[in-house]
Design a protein around this nucleic acid. Structure first.
Lengths: 248, 248
DNA sequence: TAAAATGACTGGTAAAGACCACTTAACATC
DNA sequence: GATGTTAAGTGGTCTTTACCAGTCATTTTA
């Protein structure tokens, strides 16, 4: 059974324990709102030290599966709060989450000199870095959903070809695979605009229709700006979702 | 000087250390992108054990001030990423953050039987709990900004009076003070709508103007639903902001 | 000269033990 | 019966000690 800790495993013990406990939460063995075994009990049960137990619980607490009450115990969060942590998703992921098949049409692709606004968002002082612009019409189930204009700040020896984009769809998936760059933080704004004739034409909606404008600056795990992107969503087809937490 | 650990202080040592380090980051003593002293060095410097040091750094890492690189060191995040963690803010806080003075006019106040949608959002099975509805027109610098319709799921012995709302402005501040309830998690959606005649009249905009509809369900630290609220923002006066992280 | 090994640094994981602070229920007291 | 006390259980903090796993400059070796 996989519900034991394997000391030989490369995976850290606290991580193994977290996976075991998460599994028990998800399959209902630990029902919502119930207390899980105390840290001392887990210590005996899994033959681990208390710090290791606490590290596992810390992880699950941050992930929203558990919450602790001093003096009482550690409890299972209701299912509502368990899934879909603070998500930072690409358009493709977002569409799949909504049960739609993502698609795209590339409208523009090439290196450009960034505007002052975009250079600022990407933290480029001198316009030395190469900025790749990718403008795409994005589809959900073959229906135009959004107009995406992306500016990527690539490093010295990094490049992305049009063919790769065509094949993969998701830029983020590609950056992960090719260069080990993971998007970890982003600032987003959302506001309302009205469709210009060009936008209306591409999105197949009347001129002046309300749109949801989403602008995002993305940073990687080493805190370098990766991308500034604006996405114009059809107001009648898209609802933005986000989960927020306040902890500190 | 406050840059030392006080063992007698009620504040935990790891927390004191985190405050000291955060201060050094913010005042530039630890410049962005530079490495801070290693964990062993801090151990000597502050006469603390390494687990305690690590606990402090863990905190600052989660707050976005620092990031670690295995084998190299712990580094200061660029300022862009330091401020304004994942904020879960009330309307009043939000306005103040934007440099505007929040104001309000109460349009409706009283206990109601929740609609099916609202009961579901609040996780009420039977309509036993009392649901307090507060409908308010919200101002920023005396200009109407948003139309807020709030439904509060209060506990047995909890109540809020109209006078308290008038005086305080923020419901959250009141819940914290009176009942120790802290909003810790929320789901939000944003979408575009068009102003109805009633909404247009209240917000002093033309009928059919685009609005930003923000719906939010709020949970407290003990994972109970506190509130479901919808806010209709003037599309020409409001931009939504959020910071996202992906860590696990 | 170039490749490989070394060693000294970094953060990452783990154990064992101690004491504090909060919660609760059983108990003793008035 | 109501009230205050106590004790046991919980998570919270902290120390000491050890070893593992990446990184990188230096040294050794082929």
């Amino acid at each position: 059974m996989s519900s034991m800790i394997d000391p030989a495993n490369i995976v850290p013990k606290y991580y193994q324990l977290a996976n075991i406990l998460r599994e028990k939460i998800l399959n209902g063995e630990f029902p919502a709102q119930d207390a899980i075994p105390s840290e001392r009990q887990l210590e005996e049960q899994y033959n681990l030290s208390r710090p290791t137990i606490r590290q596992a619980i810390d992880l699950l607490e941050r992930q929203g599966y558990l919450y602790r009450v001093h003096g009482k115990g550690t409890f299972v969060s209701p299912p509502k709060l368990q899934k879909g942590m603070l998500e930072l998703t690409s358009f493709s992921e977002d569409m799949r989450n909504r049960g739609l098949e993502p698609g795209q049409r590339i409208l523009d692709f090439g290196y450009v000199v960034p505007s002052a606004k975009i250079a600022h968002q990407l933290g480029l002082n001198a316009p030395d870095g190469q900025v790749l612009r990718i403008k795409r019409l994005r589809y959900g189930n073959d229906e135009p959903i959004g107009l995406q204009d992306s500016y990527l700040a690539l490093g010295e020896n990094q490049s992305i070809t049009r063919d790769e984009i065509e094949a993969k769809g998701s830029i983020y998936a590609m950056l992960e695979q090719k260069y080990g760059i993971y998007p970890t933080e982003a600032d987003e704004t959302l506001e309302v605009t009205l469709a210009t004739p060009e936008e209306a034409d591409l999105l197949k909606i009347p001129v002046g229709s309300p749109l949801l404008l989403n602008e995002r600056t993305l940073w990687s795990q080493d805190r370098k700006a990766i991308e500034f992107v604006s996405i114009l969503y059809r107001g009648d087809r898209y609802k933005y979702f986000v989960r927020l937490t306040r902890k500190w």
